[in-house]
Design a protein around this nucleic acid. Structure first.
Length: 382
DNA sequence: CACCCGTGGAG
DNA sequence: TCTCCAAGGGT
């Protein structure tokens, strides 16, 4: 109760000071911002691409994709016209592949309505564009005073306020009001970029540089002496480890790859057939069972290869690859797409990172030659 | 609201 | 080696 009152008071005080803060913030930004490629454009399409790529993805990762993607898909028309297979290949390695599919849908919606909507509320109606992404495009491309509340900006407000609980509900509304006051008080595009830049380079989650922060010294988090405490991290539970057997199933000089179901986890990507171990099952037993159940396929001469570990957000897998052979006339029985490919063709299909780690072990030369490969190291282990 | 959706880099 | 998590959005 008393905490609630205290928060209201400090929130009102901060809200009133926002215009002053933005003055010093913009001075700092003009002096010390990084030179990022998407800061040179007002093209809503290019800004959209960068903003979607940057969702939950680090700048350094996006840098490796952004310009190549724009060369491949230079405008809404080219993106709308492509097929999902090619699009996923361009997105391969970025993760959260639903982002690419929603961009595809949005591109077609934009063409259908005859061009880009200019206002944030309209942008937000497009697939994959939420309030923050809409605010970014509307302010950067069209100069609208549309607020952003991304992880960076949320952290800045939380620290200035000394917010010691996860922001949700009414607190979140208050933080959006602060972002709204910020874009009302000065050039919206500059304010939004400056806030995100401050969060990314100074008011960082860990090891913030409070000594060089342009914002006032009454920041509650800085005064506490332990700014990293703010905002509090939500508790994380341990990720379960799943054991998975995979087959590199040769038929002549080609091996089998299967396409994952279109929706859901890694939807639409290609992979090596196989599956999770069941209770009491050995690795080769699990592979034979999965191949029978999923593909009605029998294989012989299983040769194990070293296991490869790969982590996802909520679980972890250990992939146990087996080279083996299918009969000359073997065909998998499955409603999903499959192909028998040469190892030279690995680079033509979109695979999840875990599968690339396996390829890197099986076909070191080939895999390293594939454009995205050098990344997949040899971490593994039983 | 709680959960789902990937990945690679930092410390 | 291990934990954390980044310019979120959809359901």
């Amino acid at each position: 109760m008393s905490r609630g009152r205290t928060e209201e008071v400090s929130f009102a005080a901060l809200l009133a000071r926002v215009p002053d803060l933005m003055g010093t913030l913009l001075d700092w930004y003009r002096r010390s911002h990084r030179d990022l490629p998407w800061r040179h454009t007002h093209d809503p399409y290019a800004l959209w691409v960068s903003e979607v790529m940057l969702q939950q993805t680090q700048v350094s990762t996006v840098l490796a994709y952004y310009e190549r993607f724009l060369r491949r898909y230079p405008d809404v028309e080219s993106l709308a016209a492509t097929d999902e297979e090619a699009l996923l290949k361009a997105w391969e390695g970025l993760g959260y592949y639903g982002r690419a599919k929603r961009m595809h849908l949005a591109a077609r919606a934009i063409l259908q309505r005859g061009g880009w909507p200019r206002r944030a509320v309209e942008l937000q109606a497009l697939p994959g564009i939420g309030r923050s992404t809409a605010g970014a495009i509307a302010s950067f491309a069209f100069g609208e005073a549309a607020p952003i509340l991304d992880g960076n900006i949320r952290r800045i407000w939380a620290r200035l306020l000394g917010l010691d609980r996860p922001a949700s509900g009414q607190v979140l509304v208050s933080l959006w009001r602060l972002s709204g006051a910020a874009v009302q008080s000065a050039d919206p595009a500059l304010v939004n970029q400056a806030l995100m830049e401050l969060g990314a380079t100074v008011c960082r989650p860990r090891n913030p540089f409070c000594g060089v922060c342009p914002l006032p010294s009454w920041c509650e988090a800085a005064l506490s002496g332990d700014p990293e405490r703010f905002p509090p991290r939500s508790p994380r539970h341990a990720r379960p480890l799943l054991e998975v057997s995979l087959g590199i199933i040769w038929r002549g000089g080609r091996f089998l790859v299967t396409k994952r179901a279109p929706n859901g986890f890694l939807g639409g990507l290609w992979e090596l057939p196989g599956g999770k171990w069941q209770e009491g099952e050995t690795a080769p037993e699990a592979l034979r069972r999965e191949l029978r159940e999923e593909l009605a396929l029998e294989v012989i001469h299983l040769r194990p290869h070293p296991a490869v570990r790969h982590g996802y957000s909520h679980f972890e897998v250990r992939l146990h690859p087996f080279e083996c052979e299918a009969a000359d006339d073997a065909e998998p029985h499955t409603p999903l797409a499959h192909r028998w490919i040469l190892s030279e063709e690995i680079g033509t299909l979109a695979f999840p990172a875990g599968t690339h780690k396996v390829f890197a072990r099986m076909f070191p030369i080939r895999s390293r030659a594939a454009e995205s490969a050098g990344r997949y190291g040899t971490r593994d282990g039983p």
